[in-house]
């Protein structure tokens, strides 16, 4: 996915924008679009099987929220059925369903965000505003594998010392408590040395300026502009009442929502926003293809380079490799 190759701020901004619009309104169409694009993105990131699995896992939640809303309130007019003295209205069910759909979209968008934004990128972004906190999270990551390794060693050592045949629960618990206690003391002891190392490397000089490997590039500008533009459009649409939708007492779309096509502008803007990663992919594919076409059509291409060119667009790597080879050939010829 092309979005992954952009600056973390771009990724963050994009997801913030999508989540903003998704959660700003409770509207069937917006919730539907958001959900569809979230599922689509998750599918492209993790594949069909995983997406279906997480859908299966998460659908009961939707059912639960829908039912709970129906049970919890009695404002709806269109009574569908009654159980005992409780009447269940279409409106309450609908509201619950849309609520649940919104929540599901939020969860899906978040999981896509986790996939796209690895820890390093997140910390690089966090480091701009909260350098110490960002550094501490890095340090926590540095400590976790050591903690696990030491925990294992303590476990082995204690079991070997005290005999490993204790199947009793009490002995197991005692051992776990001892393990945790030794682990804590040991980790802290090691941390004293880490603190020394930090001082030795001048942490307290007062000059600290965090450095991140990610760099702002020219290609990052376009998605940011698009995201901001589409979000503004959507928010303005919402502010002007484009997303007006009444659930209670009887659901209907107020006329001001449709006035001047406000709803359509809103829907178009949001749908484009949802499809933005796809557009970025298309853009990348187009550039790759263009690059390859040029190489294929140039007559000085050697069979060696031709063999290296991928048949269909594959990855930027290939493109780079072939470009380098061709450049060098040209230099040699001239």
């Amino acid at each position: 996915m092309a979005l992954k190759r952009y600056h973390p701020t771009v990724i963050f901004l994009y997801f913030a924008a999508v989540l903003l619009v998704t959660m700003l309104v409770r509207h069937p169409v917006i919730a539907g679009i958001s959900f569809l694009f979230a599922v689509f993105m998750r599918w492209r990131l993790t594949g069909v099987v995983k997406t279906l699995k997480s859908l299966l896992y998460i659908l009961p939640m939707l059912v639960f929220i829908t039912c709970f809303n129906a049970v919890a309130n009695d404002r709806g007019m269109t009574v569908l059925f009654t159980i005992g003295r409780r009447s269940f209205s279409l409106e309450a069910l609908l509201y619950g369903f849309i609520s649940g759909l919104t929540l599901l979209s939020v969860l899906f968008w978040f999981s896509c965000y986790s996939d796209l934004m690895d820890n390093g990128r997140f910390l690089a972004m966090l480091g701009k505003r909260l350098p110490v906190i960002s550094m501490m999270v890095s340090m926590i990551f540095r400590y976790i594998p050591d903690t696990i390794r030491h925990g294992r060693e303590i476990d082995m050592s204690q079991r070997a010392l005290l005999g490993s045949d204790d199947r009793q629960r009490k002995a197991k618990v005692t051992r776990a408590v001892r393990l945790a206690s030794i682990l804590m003391a040991w980790s802290m002891e090691n941390a004293i040395e880490t603190a020394d190392a930090m001082r030795a490397k001048g942490y307290q000089s007062g000059l600290r300026r965090p450095y991140a490997r990610v760099r702002w590039m020219q290609r990052d500008v376009l998605p940011v502009l698009l995201t901001v533009l589409l979000t503004c459009l959507a928010v303005v649409g919402i502010a002007m009442g484009g997303a007006a939708f009444l659930f209670y007492p009887e659901w209907y779309v107020p006329s001001r929502a449709l006035q001047g096509g406000r709803l359509y502008v809103l829907v178009c803007a949001f749908a484009t926003l949802g499809a933005l990663p796809l557009l970025l992919d298309l853009g990348e594919w187009f550039r790759d293809e263009l690059c390859l076409r040029r190489h294929r059509s140039s007559d000085e291409i050697s069979p060696y380079v031709a063999a290296m060119l991928p048949r269909r667009h594959d990855a930027g790597r290939w493109r780079l490799a072939s470009c380098v080879v061709i450049d060098e050939r040209k230099r040699d010829n001239s």
């Binding site: 340090m139 050591d146 945790a180 941390a191 930090m198 307290q204």
Partner: peptide, 14 residues
Amino acid sequence: KPRHILPIVVMSAL
């Protein structure tokens, strides 16, 4: 200072 940071880091890691 490092001595304020590290206890938090270690406890969080644990």
